[in-house]
């Protein structure tokens, strides 16, 4: 029998939107310039790059993994697209090849984790060093220009908003829909939730684990191309500052390190939140040091708030039947 009447709960992935609304409200009151058109325009492209990265990181975390090679793959993607575009004479072919190579880098990560059994942190730490090395060798240590057509695309605007924002939004929607409503997505979540149970029910679990790193690699590739295109050139250190923010976005968005359920939409919201938080701290005239402190506090609050007993859940416990 089904006992209905459940009070609506915020849920683990709902908090970020409440926080985002609060933050926008606070910004409007104390530092309207932080959410002014000009600063939103300057913020959105970088927020979009972070969203793209954080999508990949979320997928890996849903498989109980962690991808420390994200910074290296972002970097190498920028350099590769510059190189491939020159070699093949076509930026589009360059983009496709870059995504393929970064996907392959992700597959290597996944193989080390799922087949060899190295813990994700160590495996991706090592491959991160490897990919960074390749990036240095490729570039010879100097920046490489991005073809003008790609630059134009990455810097273009559509209906007032940067194209990169649309790219990120489309990817969030696609990944979210696939996870939510397809067979592959359901199995993906199940493998992350309990790999032994998924295997016992006939799922090829290694494919899903490796797949998460591979798709993540492609997400990083798109982010790397977007970043290099927006700046106009690729450098051998472009991605270095993105590792911690990508993890922070996942954490603040509410996807747990224990795997299984997760939300790329919440992660995207968290990426926006973190970027806006930085902006607000800056507009208040505080030093960049305070940005870090604000982020740390956001992480700690994000984790603690989900540990608070949910009033709806408490009620539910009384009603639970043996």
């Amino acid at each position: 029998m089904i006992i209905r009447s459940r009070p609506p709960a915020v849920g683990e992935f709902g908090w970020i939107w409440i926080a985002l609304v609060l933050l926008v409200g606070v910004s409007a009151l104390v530092a309207p310039s932080a959410i002014g058109l000009a600063s939103v325009y300057s913020m959105l492209p970088f927020a979009s790059v972070l969203v793209l990265l954080a999508i990949g990181q979320t997928l890996v975390v849903q498989q109980r993994g962690l991808d420390m090679s994200v910074a290296a793959i972002v970097t190498i993607a920028g350099l590769l697209v510059a190189k491939f575009s020159v070699l093949t004479g076509s930026p589009m072919v360059g983009v496709v090849l870059t995504c393929a190579v970064c996907g392959a880098a992700g597959i290597l990560n996944g193989l080390l984790v799922a087949r060899i059994g190295i813990s994700p942190i160590v495996a991706t730490l090592a491959t991160g060093a490897l990919y960074f090395g390749v990036a240095r060798i490729l570039s010879g240590g100097s920046a490489m220009p991005i073809p003008p057509s790609l630059q134009a695309l990455a810097q273009a605007r559509l209906l007032g908003a940067p194209v990169l924002f649309y790219v990120a939004a489309v990817l969030v929607v696609v990944v979210s829909l696939v996870l939510r409503s397809t067979v592959v997505g359901r199995r993906f979540i199940a493998v992350g939730s309990n790999i032994a149970a998924a295997r016992a029910q006939g799922t090829r679990t290694a494919a899903y684990q490796i797949g998460s790193y591979a798709v993540a690699g492609v997400c990083y590739a798109i982010a790397g191309i977007a970043l290099a295109g927006f700046i106009g050139y690729a450098t051998p250190t472009a991605g270095s500052s993105y590792l911690l923010p990508s993890i922070a976005a996942v954490v603040v968005g509410g996807t747990p390190f224990t795997g299984g359920k997760g939300s790329v939409v919440a992660t995207a919201g968290a990426a926006m939140f973190m970027t806006l938080l930085d902006q607000l701290v800056l507009s208040l005239g505080a030093s960049p040091a305070m940005q870090l402190l604000a982020q740390a506090v956001a992480i700690i609050i994000a984790v603690s708030i989900r540990r608070l007993p949910n009033p709806a859940k408490l009620l539910g416990r009384h009603r639970r039947l043996a």
């Binding site: 491959t127 490897l130 090395g133 990036a135 060798i137 240590g141």
Partner: peptide
């Protein structure tokens, strides 16, 4: 070069 050092470390 730096690059090879990093590759060597990762491998």
């Amino acid at each position: 070069t730096d690059g090879w050092r990093s590759v060597l470390l990762g491998v």
